[in-house]
Amino acid sequence: MEAIYIILAGSLVAVSCGLVGSYLILRKMAMVADAISHAVLPGIVIAFFISGSRDSLPMLLGAGALGIITTFLIEFFHKKGNLQTDASIGVTFTWLFALGVILISTFAGKVDLDQDCVLYGEIAYVPIDLWITDTGTIMGPRVLYISGSVLLVVIAFIFIGYKELFLTTFDPSYAAIIGINTTLWHYLLMGAVSLTTVASFESVGAILVVALLIAPPATAYLLTEDFKKMLIFTCIIGIIVSVLGYYLASYIDGSIAGAMSTVAGLIFLVVFLFSPTQGVVFRNRRSKLSMTLNEEPI
């Protein structure tokens, strides 16, 4: 039962992360995911100070607010200060993260938060962190409810805004011409990234969230040239990652989150080398094929 809970939690997190991550890599904003996943830290600490509890809702709100602020600051430095996007990302998230670290360490005695937990998370605690109602009924692991709800929100968001997200990602200026509010969709997507990141925080930690946001969609991108298939492949890869990651961790008796990220990286490497369309190994053969394709009269 423990294994199933952990794998299920991992899969839910990996699928939500992968879905929003697909849009990020196509928007060439993969590093924004990195930035958000770190910069939400002060939001979590401040939410903890204000609410005085480690309930999920205040944490989600605090972290979500910081996530939006982060993306806003990145855009602001980039547009108003003419700073390159990568420099803008680098400046923004490091100081926000540092601020969070200072807040935790200064109030370490009074705060039931520690840096290790925030950075690395601990998915192994999922089965013992139960949701118990006031009447004493045990509802099962709390993380499953949180990451399950986040996944539902993410799926609903993509389902409702599929066309708008697709078009604003591919060609934002054309989207603006036909009356789609590109800024609105940008911040909605960033809101979804923040939400997903925060919800995944407790289970896999800040650093490893990035792996789940980027590695599965990057792998799927190499496997297909159809966007819908890319989303589906991303989900499948996310689930494979959490299953294999769990068994790798129990085999080597190590960190589960670490094992999952390692598996994600290994799957990417295998696909990078052997993908039928993009793989390095088949590339020579493919370029010969495309040469003959180009010769056909058009």
């Binding site: 066309k163 697709f166 078009l167 591919f170 054309y174 989207a175 040239e225 159809d226 966007f227 298939k229």
Partner: peptide
Amino acid sequence: SVDWDFPASVYDVVMMGRYG
């Protein structure tokens, strides 16, 4: 102005003209 490596087909892109 766009990234032509985007995972989309000709049909997908032309259909964008109907999104508005």
